[in-house]
C-alpha cells in the first residue's frame, strides 16, 4: 500500500514537471533546468565517489569537457544541439577513460589531488587551443531560444542517472563497487578486479556531466574556460551529495533540491556573504552530518540502502 502511494506520488511529480513549461514563466523554466542539472551532477558524483569511496575532486572536468565539445561542434560544424550534447557525453566518457585508466590506481588523497590537477590542466588547455576553443575569450553560440526542449533534455538526463543509480545499487555490480569503498584489499583478495570496476563506475559517472555540460553551454549561449571548469562546482556537487546522503539513491536528489533552493532563495539576498555562508554550510555538513539526511534516517530506522 505504501509502495503504491509512493509510486503514485512519484508519477504525479513527473507529470507536474512535464507539464510545467506549458504554464511556467521563462525564468521558472530556466531555474528548474538548472535544478535538473545539479541533480544530474550530484547523482553522477555519487556513482563514483559515493559508491567506491574514490573522491573525484575534479569532477567538473567532465562537465567542462561536455560543454566545450558541444559548443565546438555547434559553432564550427553547425551540429544541432541535441546530438551535440550527446557527443559531449561521449567525449566526457573518453576523457574519463584516459584519466581513469592511470589515475584510479592512486589511493586516497593522491587520487583527489590528481583529479584536482587534471581539471586545471584542462582549463589551461581550453584557453590554449585558441583556434578550436576561442581561448580565453570563450565561445559564443548562435542565438537560439530552446529553453523548453533543453528543460526536457536536462530533466531526462537527471532522471536517467537516477534510474541508473537505482539499477546499479540493486545489483551485484553495485555491491562490488561498495566493497572497494569498504575494503579494497579484501575486495581484490576476494577475486574482484577492483581496477576494472572503478573504471566502469568512473566512465558511467562521466556521461551525464558531459551531457548536461553540453546542454547548459547551449542554454547559456556562451562559455569560457573559467566558467566551465570551476573547482567550486565540483565542491557544490559533493556538498549536495553529502547533505542528502551519499551512497543512496535519493540522497543526491534531495541534497541538490535543498541546497539549490536555499541558494536561489537566500544567497541572492546576501551576495556579499555568499562564500562565507557556503563555507559555513560545508563545515556544518561535514562536522554535524557526514552521513547526510538520508544516511541518518537510514541508520535510525534501519531502512534499506535503496532509499
Amino acid at each position: 500500500m505504501r509502495r503504491l502511494g509512493l509510486a503514485a506520488l512519484a508519477a504525479l511529480a513527473v507529470v507536474a514537471l512535464a507539464l510545467y513549461p506549458l504554464e511556467g514563466t521563462g525564468y521558472g523554466v530556466r531555474v528548474m533546468l538548472q535544478l535538473f542539472m545539479w541533480i544530474a551532477l550530484a547523482q553522477s558524483w555519487n556513482l563514483i565517489s559515493g559508491l567506491t569511496g574514490y573522491v573525484s575532486f575534479g569532477h567538473v572536468a567532465f562537465y567542462g569537457m561536455g560543454a566545450y565539445s558541444t559548443a565546438i561542434v555547434i559553432v564550427r560544424l553547425g551540429w544541432p544541439w541535441l546530438p551535440a550534447a550527446l557527443l559531449g557525453g561521449a567525449m566526457a566518457m573518453v576523457l574519463a577513460l584516459v584519466i581513469g585508466w592511470p589515475c584510479l590506481r592512486l589511493k586516497g588523497p593522491y587520487f583527489a589531488i590528481a583529479m584536482l590537477g587534471l581539471n586545471e590542466v584542462l582549463r589551461v588547455a581550453a584557453s590554449y587551443f585558441e583556434g578550436l576553443t576561442g581561448g580565453g575569450l570563450g565561445l559564443s553560440l548562435p542565438t537560439l531560444h530552446a529553453s523548453v526542449p533543453i528543460y526536457y533534455a536536462m530533466g531526462l538526463t537527471a532522471a536517467g542517472v537516477t534510474l541508473l543509480t537505482y539499477v546499479i545499487l540493486t545489483s551485484r555490480f553495485g555491491l562490488r563497487l561498495m566493497t572497494i569503498r569498504e575494503d579494497e584489499v579484501a575486495a581484490e583478495a576476494m577475486g574482484i578486479d577492483t581496477h576494472r570496476y572503478k573504471l566502469y563506475a568512473f566512465l558511467l559517472s562521466a556521461v551525464a556531466p558531459g551531457i548536461v555540460g553540453g546542454l547548459s553551454a547551449r542554454d547559456q549561449g556562451y562559455i569560457e574556460p573559467i566558467s566551465v571548469f570551476p573547482l567550486l562546482m565540483t565542491i557544490t556537487m559533493i556538498v549536495m551529495v553529502l547533505f542528502g546522503g551519499k551512497g543512496t539513491i535519493w540522497g543526491p536528489v534531495l541534497g541538490a533540491v535543498l541546497l539549490f533552493t536555499f541558494q536561489e532563495l537566500v544567497w541572492a539576498r546576501f551576495i556579499y556573504l555568499h562564500q562565507l555562508l557556503f563555507g559555513a554550510i560545508i563545515v556544518t555538513v561535514v562536522l554535524l552530518m557526514p552521513r547526510g539526511i538520508l544516511g541518518v534516517l537510514q541508520q535510525k530506522y534501519n531502512l534499506p540502502r535503496t532509499i
Binding site: M178, T179, E182, D183, A186, E188, A189, M190, G191
Partner: peptide, 24 residues
C-alpha cells in the same frame, strides 16, 4: 598475477585482522 587473478585460479584466503565489508 594480481590478487583477483590468483583468487580465480582457486586460492582463497582470510586475513589476520578481520576484513569483512562492514556496510554490506
Amino acid at each position: 598475477l594480481k590478487p583477483h587473478q590468483v583468487f580465480h585460479h582457486g586460492i582463497g584466503r582470510t586475513f589476520q585482522v578481520i576484513r569483512v565489508f562492514p556496510e554490506l
